[in-house]
């Protein structure tokens, strides 16, 4: 009973709280990193160096008036942010934060579940998130949101292809769809898949930028063109949900990249003996560090690059990334056959 219901529930609560707090502070981190890059200070007023800023933001968003446009589809308008957020959150179900540990004399795996189709599960929940964006734009009954949502969904679907194709080459390398087994495969091979599959990593990262609507692919909400894209008409808590979903998605893609390419919870160079002192750091800390390193990259890129144009983005996705990903799969498979025989 404990193993079946209580433990997973505790883990879910832990992960959700952790994720939400991380998101809040990721926003602060983003503002701070941007500020450092741009030679300014960023939030400084709420608490020392602005550390309480996220709390102030949340309070503000909670008490703000929640406006629904007069001729909006009320139910769909309300449901859309939830449809975006929920898939982002439930993706964490299969992300392994660490191996099994002993807590109170009981082996507790540091992941909610280990699905045998874990990687595909992540792809599938990401596919659901698209609906929230389309519907949010449609239900607002306004032109900029509609344009933004059509762009956004087309972008997400296109880049999802490229990203999924990179998954295939990782699966070929690991021989499993389970996230935990992919990490274990990297331990057994003694090398992170980032070095085995550098092309896949590159495509995945570009695709991830596009899937999370981050600069330079932040077209759906390109403020200078479409005002705010699909969430132009949203305010208050419902806007906060969209915002939350965007940052949650950033964490998800970084965590997946960590798992697939950077050895998940494994310490760097898991098979080098004389580096074993690195093992003193708990695995979940390694996981967090790697994830945040990737997140930092997201923030850094946002501060540096201009924005692509919509057709250029599509061209990049379809004419470069997808063929490259397919070629990568073919090469991976060929190498695997040659090495296997």
């Amino acid at each position: 009973m404990i193993d079946l219901i209580v433990l997973p529930l505790i883990k879910i609560v832990f992960v959700l709280t952790g994720v939400l707090i991380t998101v809040m502070y990721l926003v602060l981190l983003e503002r701070k990193v941007q500020a450092w890059v741009q030679a300014r200070l960023g939030p400084m007023r709420v608490g020392p160096h602005g550390v309480l800023q996220p709390i102030a933001d949340v309070v503000k968003l909670f008490v703000k008036e929640d406006v629904t446009p007069a001729r909006a589809e009320k139910w769909v308008f309300t449901a859309a942010p939830i449809i975006v957020l929920v898939p982002a959150l439930i993706a964490f179900a299969v992300i392994p934060f660490g191996p099994e540990v002993n807590l109170f004399g009981r082996p507790v795996p540091l992941y909610i579940t280990d699905l045998n189709v874990g990687l595909l599960y992540i792809v599938s929940v990401a596919a659901i998130g698209v609906y929230g964006i389309i519907l949010g734009g449609w239900a607002s009954n306004s032109k900029y949101p509609l344009l933004g949502s059509l762009r956004s969904s087309a972008q997400l679907i296109s880049y999802e292809l490229a990203v999924t194709l990179t998954f295939v080459s990782v699966i070929l390398a690991a021989g499993s769809l389970s996230m935990v087994e992919i990490v274990e495969a990297q331990r057994n091979n003694g090398i992170w898949f980032a070095f085995v599959q550098p092309v896949a990593l590159f495509i995945y990262f570009v695709g991830a930028l596009a899937e999370t609507n981050r600069n330079p692919f932040d077209l759906p909400e390109a403020e200078s063109e479409l005002v705010a894209g699909f969430h132009t008409e949203y305010s208050g808590m419902r806007f906060a949900l969209f915002f939350l979903a965007e940052y949650t998605n950033m964490i998800v893609v970084s965590a997946v990249a960590t798992t697939l390419f950077f050895g998940g919870w494994l310490r760097p160079f898991p098979n080098v003996e004389w580096l074993s002192f690195l093992g003193l750091v708990p695995p979940w800390i390694w996981f967090t560090l790697k994830t945040f390193a990737l997140l930092y990259l997201f923030l850094w890129i946002r501060a540096t690059l201009p924005r692509y144009r919509y057709d250029q983005l599509m061209q990049l996705g379809w004419k470069w990334l997808i063929p490259l990903a397919i070629a990568n799969i073919i090469v991976t498979a060929a190498v695997k056959v040659v090495l296997g025989s």
């Binding site: 699905l115 045998n116 189709v117 595909l120 599960y121 792809v123 599938s124 929940v125 990401a126 596919a127 659901i128 698209v130 609906y131 389309i134 519907l135 449609w138 509609l146 059509l150 969904s153 679907i157 999802e160």
Partner: peptide, 25 residues
């Protein structure tokens, strides 16, 4: 049939129905 369940979500929900939604719009 976990594999098929995931395929159902990816292909049907993620692909086909999005197509419907586009056409409806």
């Amino acid at each position: 049939a976990q594999f098929l369940a995931v395929i159902q979500v990816i292909v049907y929900a993620g692909g086909i129905v999005v197509l419907y939604l586009f056409v409806v719009m």
